[in-house]
Simulated assay, not measured.
Amino acid sequence: MMEPSPQSPNYLIQPISLSPPYLPSPSPPPPLPLEPPPPSPTPTKPNQFLSLISKRPSVSVTSEFDSESRIFFHRVSCKLFDNLAKLKFSFLNKSKREISEPQLALTSKHLSIHYDPEEQNALIKSSFDVGPMLHFKATHDVKAQQGEVAMIANSADTSYAVEVSSPVPYVGLPKATIRFPMGEVTLEEREEEEVPRTFSINGILKSPIWNGVCSAYYMDEELKLRYSYKDGAMSFIPSVSLPSNALSFAFKRRFSPSDKLSYWYNFDSNYWSAVYKHTYDKDYKFKAGYDSEVRLGWASLWVGDENGKAKTAPMKMKVQFMLQVPQDDIKSSMLMFRVKKRWDIL
């Protein structure tokens, strides 16, 4: 019989001593769960309808005077319900202080009503989204009892769209328009006297070619071809109409960011016109030109953005001075001016 080896065994894992000094200390008891705080009272939303009514509407008055016609044009605008709707009243004031052509309009995002007190007629327009890619719009003339309804379907990238519109009351087939990145095509039914109903096609096509844009406009059996070349300083735009073969071209040259010259010539009639424009700032512009068709030279000075609104002009006022000099009768030259001023009352 083999006797045990006197050496101690080689344990892979040392034995754990269970003597009192090495006993693991007991873990502390888990903390008692805290009671959840009482729920905070739900904040009450203010009555939005009362806040819209109680808010003071903003009122503005715009007046415009034209020295040539000697007529004042006035418009009073009022924004209602925190700019959700706008009420406008406009009229003309002639030299005899007579008020004429009053117009009353109520416009909002989805509905607009234009009322003519003299004609006792109203034009109603409405538009809204039926779905994410479907839009509906309608127009109705109350006095004539006529209108139009249209449905527009857009693609996801908005570069393609199909519009189908029809007059009300319904007459014939609806008109269809297809829009795509290169233009649009319209197909509609046309009815003429002593001619059976036929379909007409109108359209616009545009395509880049030769560092420019070539455009084709087809409407009422007339085709107009137009090419536009533009770079940083020059524009050249020839055009021809078929079948009349009327040829014309426009030339524009920019000498500096503030100086520009435009020239237009018609080969069919030999008429031409030229315009020079100089801008001192966004709110100051000088123009001078000549038109051979009416044999008239003119010069104009704008104070305030020519295409902008009066509220963005200095002192909320736009002024235009124009001098017209007829070539055949210089003594009958005329100096005219036009003033447009806006006041914000509230």
Results as ranks from 00 to 15, higher is better:
Pro196Val: 07
Leu187Asn: 01
Val171Glu: 14
Lys206Arg: 13
Ser207Gly: 08
Pro174Tyr: 03
Glu191Tyr: 03
Val149Trp: 01
Gly212Pro: 02
Arg197Ser: 14
Phe180Trp: 12
Ala150Pro: 02
Ile178Val: 14
Ala176Val: 15
Ser166Thr: 12
Gly212Gln: 01
Val195Lys: 13
Asn202Cys: 04
Ala176Glu: 06
Glu194Pro: 02
Ala216Glu: 02
Ser165Gly: 13
Ser165Val: 04
Arg190Lys: 14
Asn202Arg: 05
Ser207Val: 11
Glu189Lys: 14
Gly147Gln: 07
Asn211Gly: 14
Pro181Cys: 12
Lys175Gln: 15
Glu194Arg: 12
Ser166Trp: 06
Met182Ile: 04
Cys214His: 05
Ser215Phe: 02
Ala156Met: 11
Ala150Glu: 07
Ala156Val: 14
Thr186Asp: 01
Lys143Gln: 13
Gln145Gly: 15
Gly147Leu: 06
Pro169Gly: 13
Val213Gln: 04
Ala161Glu: 07
Ile178Leu: 14
Phe199Asn: 08
Val142Pro: 00
Ser165Glu: 10
Trp210Arg: 04
Val195Leu: 09
Ala156Thr: 13
Pro208Cys: 10
Trp210Glu: 05
Gly183Tyr: 04
Asp157Ile: 07
Thr177Arg: 05
Ala144Lys: 15
Pro167Thr: 06
Ser200Thr: 08
Ile201Tyr: 03
Tyr170Cys: 12
Leu205Tyr: 13
Met182Tyr: 12
Gly183Pro: 05
Leu205Val: 10
Val149His: 01
Ala156Gly: 10
Ile204Ala: 06
Asp157Arg: 09
Leu173Glu: 07
Ala176Arg: 03
Ser215Gln: 13
Ala156Ile: 12
Ala161Trp: 03
Ala150Asn: 09
Pro169His: 13
Ile201Thr: 08
Gly147Asn: 09
Val171Lys: 15
Glu184Ile: 00
Glu189Thr: 12
Ala176Trp: 03
Tyr170Pro: 05
Pro169Trp: 12
Val142Asn: 01
Ser159Lys: 15
Arg179Asn: 05
Val162Lys: 01
